[in-house]
Design a protein around this nucleic acid. Structure first.
Lengths: 332, 332
DNA sequence: ATGAAAGCGCTAACAA
DNA sequence: TTGTTAGCGCTTTCAT
């Protein structure tokens, strides 16, 4: 924060008052075309940069928002963050990024820091319950998590339908014994995916379909090991696999491959998220519209901040779609 | 930016002056243990959150930095950004993230916006020459780009050695006809990698090694097509491939596979960056230490900002290492 | 159409 | 040890 030229200096140079300069800068109040020209010239000439910090203090609006996210390195989150920033930038908002590593303490610390920076609003990407229950006066939009108690604005993917679509695809491909690999934790998005999946089984079959749920920690290796263990114990007699993330799908696929089980000939696989690991490995996946998730969240947040909108749904649900790849192709 | 309790209110409640409260908050100046306790109690009780905006205005330090990056969605950049944020957070700095999509105009706009937010410093990840040549009084650290003219602090990976290591590995594996797939643009990191590669050829062979450079746009598809085209025109008689990014390596690999050319039996491949696409596809790759790149950049920047350091090298070079995978295994 | 003046919340001399 | 005061750069009434 080096010394920059101030509005007062500009005023002096233009032979007017700082109030007038301010008016010109913000196109409000009255001033003659002549003075406007003069002031703008000087501003140009001296490359004047308005001090947003002073402006923030005065107006009580910082033109910043904060994003609290587990890990920007996760492609899914990165895409959402990108979309948020893309939406905010043209509107003059700058965005703070805060990684938490899913650590609740860190989430809270970040929240406090952002409050002290007087951000105008927050977006929680997959925040913990503890974070969601903190009380703050800031407007908040949650993506991918539903706060159990508190009222908050929520943007979420249609997880139920995602699970439904996945099941439908497997059923269409004549899978009868299905393995579900899921995050062991009981979060709503995961559960909804599984519920949707089960619902499709009910709707589309005559109870001929069996399913087995494998709970694992989210990680390629963990999924791989869990599936390997099934195979080794002779418990793998499935012809379809649904995984609640692409990582889990990939991990499962690795285990199958290593044991000579062919995909899609012997087993069909559907993953979730449609991130690049699915793409590069030809895994059919339920696509989450990350751009829209981020964009909507930002749109709602800024809508609240500038209360340009009288009403917003509490929950906005973003549709999903199935992206078909090799892992579910029928060899007929 | 809702109304919060101020330092003055705290002072009133504690029956002291705001100056005293400020001193307690910042542990400077003198005050009795008694008043300290009293003030801290009240702060706790009312959950007082110091207004960083006011503080910034007064002290001319915003405790924020900005990162200008092409695309946070790119895993390589994301890892660096994560490392930067991790370093900055405990030191009380918040970080603004700005994506540019490699658009020079957007870079400049972001620079201006960050200047207006009065960030204390900037980190450029792979910024364009135009951006690097903008004049600003802010301390700047560049990663992965060397400004041609201006003086600036630079953190860079040892690209030359990276290329060198890649070549050595291929030569060790008896590759004699090597295809180099590189970014068509003439940026320094890419060029250094190629220079290092060529240097290793000189050092390690008796001029028995031929090389052919294929310039492509950075993208999986582009690399794939370029290599496919070589194959179709019967111009592919290589036994080794070096690509200046993992994406290009992967694209090349896809083309080879499609035409029945086996890896590593017929052709060995070495990529660059060691991002997950290399991992998932068993491509040997030159690893860039993204954590250290980010951490060092942040360390230097904050060092400058707080001028705790009297001297910093202008250029800090981070070592690389080769991660060996299937794509270069010898079948002997 | 323009300006004077107050004040946003904080810190840092300087006084007491 | 504590308080008084000025002022960071801006916006916003209210005069003129």
């Amino acid at each position: 924060m080096k010394d920059k030229i101030t509005i007062r200096k500009i005023a002096e140079l233009a032979g007017v008052s700082s109030a007038t300069v301010s008016k010109v800068l913000n196109n409000n109040g009255r001033y003659s075309e002549e003075t406007r020209k003069k002031i703008l010239d000087i501003i140009e000439k001296y490359n004047y940069q308005p001090n947003q910090v002073a402006k923030s203090l005065r107006t009580n609006k910082s033109k910043t928002i904060g994003i609290i996210v587990p890990d920007i390195t996760n492609e899914f989150f990165a895409q959402i963050v990108l979309a948020i920033e893309k939406y905010c930038d043209p509107l003059g908002y700058s965005v703070f990024i805060c990684n938490t590593g899913e650590n609740e303490e860190k989430e809270i610390q970040h929240l406090k820091k952002l409050e002290q920076q007087r951000v105008d609003g927050l977006i929680y990407l997959s925040g913990s319950d503890k974070l969601l229950q903190m009380n703050t006066t800031l407007p908040i939009v949650c993506i991918d998590r539903k706060p159990k108690q508190k009222h908050a604005f929520i943007v979420t993917s249609d997880n139920f339908n995602g699970g439904y679509l996945a099941a439908k695809k497997l059923i269409e491909n004549n899978c009868n014994h299905i393995l579900i690999i899921r995050d062991y934790r009981d979060n709503i998005p995961t559960s909804d995916r599984v519920l949707g999946f089960e619902s499709a089984i009910k709707d589309n079959s005559q109870n001929t379909i069996s399913k087995y749920v494998l709970k694992v920690e989210v990680g390629i290796e963990q999924a791989k090991q869990a599936v390997t263990s099934l195979i080794k114990n002779n418990k793998f007699h499935f012809d379809g696999v649904f995984a609640t993330t692409d990582w889990l799908a990939y991990g499962g696929m690795l285990a199958l491959r290593e044991h000579g089980i062919r995909i899609p000939e012997d087993v069909k696989i559907v993953g979730y998220d449609n991130i690049s690991i699915a793409k590069y490995n030809s895994i059919t996946s339920v696509n989450q519209n990350k751009e829209l998730l981020g964009e909507k969240a930002a749109e709602i947040l800024i809508g609240i901040i500038e209360n340009k909108t009288d009403y917003f749904q509490d929950i906005v649900t973003i549709p999903v779609n199935l992206v078909e790849r090799n892992s579910t192709f029928s060899i007929s």
